[in-house]
Design a protein around this nucleic acid. Sequence first.
DNA 1: CAAAATTATGGACATACATTCATTTTATGA
DNA 2: TCATAAAATGAATGTATGTCCATAATTTTG
Lengths: 224, 224
Amino acid sequence: MKSEDRQPRRYSSEESRRLLIEATLDSIVDVGFSNTSISEIVTRARLSRGMVHLYFDNKDALLVAAARHSAEVYYGTLSEQLKSAGSSPQAIVETVVLSDLGEDLLNERSIKIWFAFRGEAHANTAIAQYSDTRDDYLRDLIFKAFGEIAAAQGAPESEKVARDATHGTLALLEGMWTDYLLHSDSFSRASAARIIFRFLSALFPRYFNLNGAMSGKDLPCTSS
Amino acid sequence: MKSEDRQPRRYSSEESRRLLIEATLDSIVDVGFSNTSISEIVTRARLSRGMVHLYFDNKDALLVAAARHSAEVYYGTLSEQLKSAGSSPQAIVETVVLSDLGEDLLNERSIKIWFAFRGEAHANTAIAQYSDTRDDYLRDLIFKAFGEIAAAQGAPESEKVARDATHGTLALLEGMWTDYLLHSDSFSRASAARIIFRFLSALFPRYFNLNGAMSGKDLPCTSS
DNA sequence: CAAAATTATGGACATACATTCATTTTATGA
DNA sequence: TCATAAAATGAATGTATGTCCATAATTTTG
């Protein structure tokens, strides 16, 4: 009992930065963006007042760093889960949908953080930069997947269908996130996913059903 | 030029309340929720400091009143536009979708306000109460409409389809709002509507097409 | 026209805030 | 072991905040 198991007395500058960012996010989750003060942050981080300005130019820079960190975690997690996905376009789409609705990306904490930043984004261009999940990279990824599927299906106006499928899928995901924010008690990941796949199976009946991508992930898309 | 055309010197208490609420919303739009202070508000309202506490218990009560007012405007406008809609279930759904994407309900100002309140809702239960568009009333309205359509179409599991159609349509609308918030420059009301109707026409091909409800608004839904 | 009620003002107050900085503590390297 | 660098502290500062209230201006009532 002589040496209490307290935190190490001293962190590297990177550890301290990380600690402050996590404490900022904790504060946003617990008391909201507008009540997140330097005092709240340093108390939660168990650091002293001066630390924020030792490692960040000012409070705003810390908030921006926290928004940036959240975006990095989002895209990092998504990329990780995409690695273990099949290579067919249906599998890619399915993985994006299920990951985006999975607990790693969509949970009580993350949803509060995203909507807090979005609520302030229009008043802070630096934060706005990091307030968009599903940005161009993700959009391109599933647009290409839908492009392949639509072309293989041989429907008329296949590019237009692919564009609408992309837009619709991303909008549905956004909508499901909002639904989770406002009704987290009654929210069901399964039914959220089913509705999106219902949309996709209506557009591409040979490639999706209500449970996701059709079985046999590497079915030749071009066979009749 | 003797009597300058300035505002009347004195308002009724209701006018003052309204003025303060509008100024609060203006401030949220211009400088964001967290920068909206009493000083900001009274300056914009061209009233003196004491007025806020004359007509509201405190700043928080004013913010809640502003959130409430926004919700009332939303539902009031929507109800108004529903009055001039056809009575068929398709027409009701079409009106909800087009109203929700129309400029009266979805514009630069309203979207910033909604997302600002949503961002703070989880830290303020009083605001949370008014941060949900598309609440139970609206949900029931279009659920009944989809129920009629699904039953008339005679598909299996028609109630489940109606439930998914409701959830999906509302999620798509939420998603389109988010899209407008984050990419208002590239947002297109027409393509947002087309995507939602693409979803609906896939579920109910005899009742919707890419342009909305099928023509002949009062077609007998039960005919083969 | 006086009295009462309503609407409006802006200074005062304590508190909370972001920021600065002189100082101290701890770790590192010679 | 000591000098130097890195990490950490928390008191101090000035400003901004929400709230209160004594007072004034205006309207309404009797």
